[in-house]
Design a binder for these strands. Structure first.
Lengths: 195, 195
DNA sequence: CAGTATGTCTAGCACTGCTAGGCTGAGGCC
DNA sequence: GGCCTCAGCCTAGCAGTGCTAGACATACTG
């Protein structure tokens, strides 16, 4: 009984992950509007109700995909920051890594940052990987900087703006490098007094 | 015959606008997911197919709402810029006006900048009001600045990031003034050499 | 071997965007 | 004035959506 239920739980966990992966792949291939419960069920070779024995609904599946993405993003930003930890270079590397992440996996990025969600941000229940990703931005600034969090918040916002407007075709995709260079230069600049 | 068809055309135009306004109000009151063709038809007191004699589909109605918004946004940014045309103050005023616009009319802002659209941005077919809104940002920078467009693009992106992440609850709504002040200070700062 | 519990599926609900086809009433012509 | 035409509108319905109730089968338990 113990071994059997263990095996079942294992299979169940595998299927749980299978659903998440299938949703993610389908979204990446054809966009989130193509991810219907029917198509997803067909892809994992089960009937629709099986999805609902693992998740509360489609939103819940998308949330799971998003959380998976937060972990990957945090790892990627960390790697970028540690590759060149000198102050301005680190920020530049992290920002570039962020934009690359958004460009390479647009559907994943959408689930994380663009589609409606009830994942808590900047809150006690914030998923740790999400907090970790944000902290990578914070760590790019000097520890004695008392406004690091503000710096990080605005940097992240600006990157998200660039990523979101590019992805939806609202700003042209070329010239991304110039935008990145300019953004980092200004964020690390010393503001002229009296403004 | 002429007078009659003129009256008809007038009524038709009125109804066209009525649909746009109803969609906008409904979206603002209950969000875009509540704007269904049935509810919208009920609201304008016609049957569903009438909507399709004015617009190609729901997307087309949302596009019309968005374009209406571009005009209002452009006017608002222009007013803000001209109120205090001195260089850094103008940029600050325009940015604040942009964020206020996004906050006060979240559904309209969504239709303009967040929901999928096929409106052309930075393109020959770009709706003039949209181009005008962007030009308000460009005009905040000195005419001799050869990278004005880049400045404007990044400024706009950063504002959009702040607006989008705030609206979806991904960054907390308080502290918006600090973000605005910081952003404008950095955009107008002189970058330190050699970065 | 009977009974239970678990897991899965079929079928269906209420909704979505959208459209085909019929009806009605007003306009134009003799 | 009376007939015909036609534009405008509506009812009804299609295919698809997320989600669920209830039947069924399979596998474990006493």
């Amino acid at each position: 009984m113990s071994a059997i239920s263990e095996r079942r739980e294992r299979e169940r966990a595998q299927r749980h992950q299978l659903i998440i992966t299938a949703a993610r792949e389908l979204a990446e291939a054809e966009g989130w509007e193509a991810v219907t419960t029917r198509r997803l069920a067909e892809r994992v070779e089960y009937s629709q109700p099986v999805l609902y024995s693992h998740f509360h609904g489609k939103d819940d599946i998308m949330r799971a995909v998003a959380i998976e993405g937060f972990g990957e993003l945090a790892a990627r930003l960390r790697r970028a920051r540690l590759t060149d930890p000198a102050s301005p270079a680190a920020l530049h590397a992290v920002c570039r890594a962020y934009l690359e992440f958004a460009t390479e996996q647009p559907a994943l990025y959408q689930a994380m940052f663009m589609l409606p969600t009830d994942v808590k941000f900047a809150h006690a229940e914030t998923p740790p990987p999400l907090r970790a990703a944000f902290d990578e931005f914070v760590s790019c600034f000097q520890p004695d900087n008392q406004r690091r969090e503000l710096f990080a918040e605005v940097t992240w916002s600006a990157l998200h703006g660039i990523a979101a407007l590019t992805e939806s075709g609202r700003i042209p995709p070329n010239g991304q490098a110039e935008r990145l260079d300019f953004l980092v230069a200004q964020i690390t600049a010393t503001p002229r007094p009296g403004v």
